[in-house]
Design a protein around this nucleic acid. Structure first.
Lengths: 336, 336
DNA sequence: GTGGGCAGTGGAACTAGTTCCATAGTAGCA
DNA sequence: TGCTACTATGGAACTAGTTCCACTGCCCAC
């Protein structure tokens, strides 16, 4: 049986409260007493029970993160930022991976029961109005990463602007026939993803601003993934008058577009320019032109914000927008 | 203030124990009483405190996973398997990302204080003898994934055999000048990684078995990563008599070898055959020949084993070896 | 001298569950 | 008509910390 705080108190010949004060670095302990307690702790090889501590103090020093599709490189990079920042503050990270709509709903519902963790980070999944209400009523500190919802704090980028940035770059290179490959609208609605949708809005805005006609047949949507993007854009590239450039809503999808081009024997960028979004790790390897967003930093900032909210319950909803930038590499070029 | 079990008992006009029995689905409650309790629970919108539950029962329904270099695709895939299997059993996953030796040591030391979680999964990091002792003394249920240690349960593959498999494939294709690119020996020793080392042993065995002379200058070691592998193998390929094939200890490193070949204008596989290890997601995309190991499954099996150990403290150390297989794709070919 | 204030300390009460023992009620059976 | 056995139930004790109030000295100011 492990030693308890009472064993330590007895061994050191002091009261319960005194041991607790030593453990919590209270200044209200004389150096002599503190030493007696520390000696007893060593002798008994005492280590305080975190569970009992959480129970008594009501603080768990744990943060939950809900993330969709764990395997996506962008998600991993954000999680890495989260973990690193939490570790610095002495918090633990509990991870929930969401790959189905049912699990999305279950996760968001469960964490409303503000219990096992002091706060929650929700990544890419936008809570619906009723879910926001439940979270607020439960008083759970929440920070969204990569999305926004009325009345909840969040860290994000301007996806619409990012889409504009990408497409303006293609237009600047002389392209007029510009395609778009993004997330399936059904899937996005089911999970309540917004980034592909917003990047698509940016795509349309950039075309409109340049006076380029939007062609519905140039826009395709599929379940997020390399393979789906490959199939869809292959169709698109076999149109009688195919696009000369494609903006993919993510680097993963851009990889599918690259494959489609390879399938059809198109040279990149001579025959087809391709631009992605996120600047994940392999983008550099592939020489992919893309819009970079600070993924690691989004996790760090999300944690900073969450800990601030945990520390001050009265803090109203905060919102932070991170910078993005165009990264020009080898997959985009001026029109042949 | 949230309702407690006592409020529910009062509201339902029953005793404490009865409410607890209802919560834990004990059959020793009459249907009428059970209904009264359930009604009270609904009326008071009661939800039991997980912390209090953990505290009283001594079970946290949480498992910790210590993983080095979170961002490595193989690690992510294993974690995904872990998370998925834990979720099925109603457990939560706390993740610790290890990127420095100091943190490695700290993580392993801390989890010996068997408290916040019911068990621990340690990935790729081999505990040293003193650490094994500390873990055993603390009685913490532990399962290793992707490594072995005397007296601790584990799920792994036969890395030596994997290395043999890879190199025998190259030899079968007619190669005699076969290089090896693996992890830095210093780094591996510091973290206590073993997979690159074992795969290297397999490399040597396969060469010996075929009567091929081992050349020290064909073997290079660098900090795990694409970039380092690229630089190192570029040197190797500029030898007066360069290798015609290279076995990289991981797919990530194989990607670096591919880059090096590209840097020097070598055609793959006509001028240089390349084989990796792991079969991570991008391997298929790149058409990389590799040795596949069941990453997702290793996480699942690790959890199965851990939960079995948690359920039966007397269970001795168990060891499971998962199957591996050669996946032939486009980066290996017979000698030009 | 004496009252106020404060550093230092002890310990009861509290957190919200589980566990287990005692006991009431009741059905089955000789 | 008891005796046994078993179901159903109540509640005290327990888990291991924190929190906070009460109390003792001691110093200093009036």
């Amino acid at each position: 049986m492990a030693a308890t705080i009472r064993d330590v108190a007895r061994q050191a010949g002091v009261g319960l409260g005194t041991v607790s004060r030593v453990l919590n670095n209270s200044p209200l302990v004389s150096p002599i007493t503190r030493n007696r307690v520390l000696t007893a702790i060593t002798e008994l090889r005492y280590s305080p029970s975190q569970i009992a501590r959480s129970f008594a103090s009501g603080k768990t020093f744990t943060v939950s993160a809900i993330a969709p599709f764990f395997t996506r490189p962008s998600v991993v990079e954000r999680l890495r930022g989260i973990e690193s920042q939490l570790t610095i503050s002495g918090y633990s990270l509990v991870v929930f991976n969401v790959e189905t709509v049912a699990r999305r709903d279950a996760c968001i519902r469960n964490i409303s029961c503000h219990d096992r963790s002091d706060g929650v980070l929700i990544m890419s999944l936008t809570p619906r109005e009723d879910e926001v209400l439940a979270l607020q009523e439960a008083g759970t500190p929440v920070v969204l990463i990569d999305t926004v919802a009325e009345g909840i704090s969040g860290v994000r980028i301007d996806d619409v602007y990012g889409g504009e940035l990408a497409v303006r770059h293609l237009i600047d290179l002389g392209h007029q026939r510009i395609g778009f490959a993004g997330d399936s609208i059904d899937e996005a609605r089911a999970f309540n993803f917004t980034s592909s949708r917003d990047r698509h809005i940016g795509y349309m805005r950039a075309l409109d601003a340049a006076g380029v006609v939007r062609r519905p047949e140039y826009q395709c949507y599929g379940v997020h993934g390399r393979f789906e993007a490959r199939i869809l854009t292959r169709n698109l590239l076999q149109l009688p008058e195919p696009p000369t450039a494609i903006f993919a809503a993510s680097d993963t999808q851009a990889m599918g577009v690259l494959e489609a081009a390879r399938d059809l024997g198109l040279r990149v960028p001579a025959d087809l320019s391709i631009i992605g979004f996120d600047d994940i790790d392999v983008a550099e390897y592939l020489g992919l032109t893309t819009v970079r967003q600070p993924l690691f930093m989004s996790g760090q900032r999300g944690v900073d914000l969450l800990l601030r909210i945990i520390g001050d319950e009265n803090l109203g909803p905060q919102s932070e927008v991170l910078p993005i930038e165009l990264v020009m590499r080898g997959t985009t070029g001026s029109i042949g």
